[in-house]
């Protein structure tokens, strides 16, 4: 592949990937909802399973972000990343399931720990 066409293909390839791997597999479920939106019980088994699969996937992927961190977060010690996440979660529970309290505490622990770890 060469010339103008090759250049523009290289430039647009990431956006082609985005449409194929991001847009289509995601949007299909919205479109199905629009097309088949009749008589699905909110408490149906299908809803329970769909929510559970999505929950396991997202906690799985963010747990991986903490355990196998790259870049700047990867420069922090493993024990600090896990400790800050656990501390943040504990604060979330203690503060009556406040997301803000959890995130603020986790961030504070990471910053304080990272500051001292760098000495």
């Amino acid at each position: 592949m060469s010339g103008v066409f090759g250049e523009s293909l290289r430039e647009f390839w990431p956006f082609v990937v985005l449409m194929l791997v991001g847009f289509l597999p995601n949007e299909i479920w919205r479109v199905l909802g629009l097309v088949l939106a009749h008589g699905l019980d909110e408490e149906s088994e299908m809803v329970v399973v769909a929510r559970a699969v999505a929950t396991a996937l997202i906690t799985g992927v963010v747990a991986k972000l903490i355990v196998f961190s790259t870049g700047a977060l990867g420069a922090m010690p493993f024990s600090l990343r896990v400790g800050a996440a656990l501390g943040g979660f504990l604060a979330f529970v203690l503060a009556k399931r406040s997301v803000f309290a959890g995130v603020a505490t986790g961030e504070a622990l990471l910053l304080i720990g990272g500051y001292f770890a760098s000495f």
Binding site: A72, G88, V103, Y115
Partner: peptide
């Protein structure tokens, strides 16, 4: 690096707590 790490930590921390909620 330290502040960039804190920014990167935002995604896992906020998704863990909001998903738990």
């Amino acid at each position: 690096v330290l502040l960039a790490a804190a920014l990167l930590f935002l995604t896992p921390m906020s998704f863990i707590t909001s998903t738990a909620r």
